[in-house]
């Protein structure tokens, strides 16, 4: 359980993180979304004790990160996969982690296998790693202590499509086994696919948070028919608000109601489903638009 309460971090007169509170629960992937400079990374750095908070608290399993006796055993952290000594080999970086945390030596090989880095790759120096390989190594370092929580800043950056799928499956499996995952990303589709809960931040403030289902429910139902005029009439008569979308309509009602309306009017439907896909992107832009404009005006 990762809990952030009333967290504020200021730099002089600039407030990078403004009274932020949220929770990342066990068994769930919590997606942390926001435009560049919104305060995601600052919040994560405060969470793991690298940046002092101006006000408020961040706890992991009820304790501040700096109070954990061996934090690497309780929280896996990946803030920047490129923040490694370029002259060390991947294996050496894992060995340093394994020794620092006091783990058996075979954890190094186990982690290399877990993130699919080959023996040959592990003996290369990190300067010769692609960003994708660095992300895999970073995940291995985060997982080596077998922690109950994960804090990952943009872990899908630089991964190829197969790598992104791998990362998604890994996080899903980790959460399903009871772990708490806090994951920031600007790749909205990735967040939408993997996250159970969402926290949206703009200009240092939380602009929305809740389960993905709750937050995306507002995007309504996509309905298509060959006879759009008939569908238009039926929806208008039923007092469902709707708007044109992709050769059909996006109705502010659940699929069952829209289906009943169409059925009653005798309009054959081509498609009827929750309006997802662009849902998160639209929500994201909508929620952060005002804070972005304020940012420009200020």
């Amino acid at each position: 359980m990762i809990r952030v309460e009333n967290l504020t971090r200021t730099y002089g007169s600039f407030t990078a993180v403004d009274d932020v509170s949220f929770v990342a629960r066990p068994g769930r992937v919590t997606g942390f979304l926001g435009p560049n400079g919104a305060g995601k990374s600052t919040t994560m750095r405060v969470l793991v004790g690298l940046t002092p908070a101006t006000e408020g608290t961040a706890t992991i399993g009820g304790r501040r990160f700096v109070d954990l006796p061996n934090p690497g055993r309780e929280v896996g952290v990946l803030l920047d996969a490129s923040a490694q000594h370029a002259g060390r080999t991947g294996r050496e970086i894992l060995t340093i982690a394994q020794r620092t945390l006091g783990l058996p030596a075979d954890r190094v090989d186990a982690m290399l296998e877990r993130v699919s880095l080959t023996e040959e790759e592990s003996q290369r120096r990190v300067r010769h790693y692609s960003l994708g390989m660095r992300q895999r190594l970073g995940i291995a370092v985060a997982l080596i202590g077998d922690p109950a929580s994960l804090v990952l800043d943009e872990p899908a950056n630089g991964l190829d499509p197969a790598g992104i799928r791998w990362m998604r499956d890994l996080l899903r499996g980790y959460a399903d086994a009871g772990g708490s995952v806090l994951l920031s990303s600007h790749l909205l589709h990735e967040i939408e696919v993997v996250a159970d809960d969402l926290v949206v931040i703009g200009n240092g403030r939380i602009v929305a948070s809740g389960t993905k289902a709750e937050l995306l429910a507002g995007s309504g139902t996509l309905v298509r028919a060959r006879d759009l005029d008939a569908l238009h009439r039926a929806l208008t008569e039923s007092a469902v608000t709707f708007s044109p979308l992709d050769g059909g309509f996006r109705a502010d009602a659940d699929a069952e109601l829209v289906g009943k309306v169409a059925h009653a009017a005798g309009v054959p439907l081509l498609e009827l489903r929750a309006a997802d896909g662009a849902g998160l992107e639209e929500m994201f832009l909508e929620l952060t638009a005002t804070t972005q404009r304020e940012g420009v005006a200020a």
């Binding site: 793991v48 690298l50 990160f65 952290v77 803030l79 923040a83 490694q84 000594h85 982690a97 370092v141």
Partner: peptide, 16 residues
């Protein structure tokens, strides 16, 4: 090295 190579990010999260 902890700052110029940015390894401090890992070092100081393992040992706060």
């Amino acid at each position: 090295g902890e700052w110029s190579q940015r390894t401090g990010l890992t070092t100081f999260t393992f040992v706060p």
